[in-house]
Design a protein around this nucleic acid. Structure first.
Lengths: 172, 172
DNA sequence: GAGTGGTCTAGACCACGGA
DNA sequence: CCGTGGTCTAGACCACTCT
């Protein structure tokens, strides 16, 4: 194996990190450092198992974290392809809870600053859990608490183009 | 077990759905139909294993789908709590907000170089879409992958003073 | 056919919350 | 204490891609 994972100090003061997080950190480091350039293939699951000395389940759990962050995509029979070499801070992932939207709208106000149509590339497709190539309306804005005094968060909302018309009005 | 999962037709024309998708469909159906109301607990993993006649891994993979859709949350020692009774796939909201920082911090390290309170001048007010004169906490730092070898990004975080108190401590 | 990732099982131990 | 979900192992078979 490449080098044993840091089994973190037993000190109860230090937060315990699961192995798959440690593996993910190493892999993210390798991707962002250019060891695995964009377009290249990551080592196979089997290779990573022996490199890190962990089971396949742990390796897959680690790679899932890279997948969630849009760093890689995977294809059966092919491998794991690097798609990006940095984590986009803006894309903090919170999946759709349309049920929360009414409550959101009650308490907060979205001030739209930008709205444009985008085509989902592979990274965005993974983020949105949709097939690549799909059309989405991307709305950017600041979310304010209630009467719009204090901006609380910067928000990107992706609306499937097929339904964009109805939401467009609500965003205004 | 409650009832055997439909082992889908062997017809090659029908798309094969993995078991954890079928389990997830059943659970989503149970949540949206009100069998498990918002606020209630889902059966335990062990119960679901016997109900559906699948392994724990498959059950967990199914529940992960509900988790991704924001239908439930989970707590060790407690159980799986229903948080919403509607699933909506058309809208995906990604938000960069304070509450999401810890998850991001798992894999990266923010080395704070400066933290100060600023008063928004006209330029900053335009950037932040706020009235001039508002108080903000400005945190500047380098974001590193893992042990801080290569800075990945230079980050300026503006935190509205009204929310700055809790974040101030975590940033240092 | 060989190699890849996708699914699935049957076990194990741990960390946490509540009685 | 017990039961919960969280992590992890070792193994298996399958679907897919490429040669």
């Amino acid at each position: 194996m490449r080098s044993p994972l840091n089994v973190q100090s037993r000190s109860p003061l230090l937060a315990h990190q699961p192995q798959y997080v440690l593996v993910a950190q190493r892999l993210i480091e390798d991707v962002t450092s250019g060891r695995y350039p964009v377009g290249s293939l990551l080592p196979t699951e089997f290779d990573l198992c022996t490199q890190f000395g962990v089971s396949r389940h742990t390796v897959r759990e680690a790679i899932r974290r890279l997948l969630d962050r849009g760093l890689v995509t995977r294809q059966r029979g092919i491998g794991t392809t690097v798609k990006a070499n940095r984590v986009e801070t803006r894309y903090v992932q919170t999946t759709a809870k349309i049920a929360d939207l009414p409550r959101y709208v009650e308490d907060t106000l979205l001030v739209t600053t930008q709205a444009e149509e985008v085509i989902a590339d592979e990274v965005l497709a993974e983020l949105l859990k949709c097939p690549p190539g799909q059309r989405w309306m991307k709305v950017t804005g600041f979310r304010h608490v209630n009467k719009g005094k204090l901006p609380m968060a910067l928000t990107d909302i992706y609306i499937n183009a097929a339904y964009g018309g109805s939401v467009n009005s609500s965003a205004r």
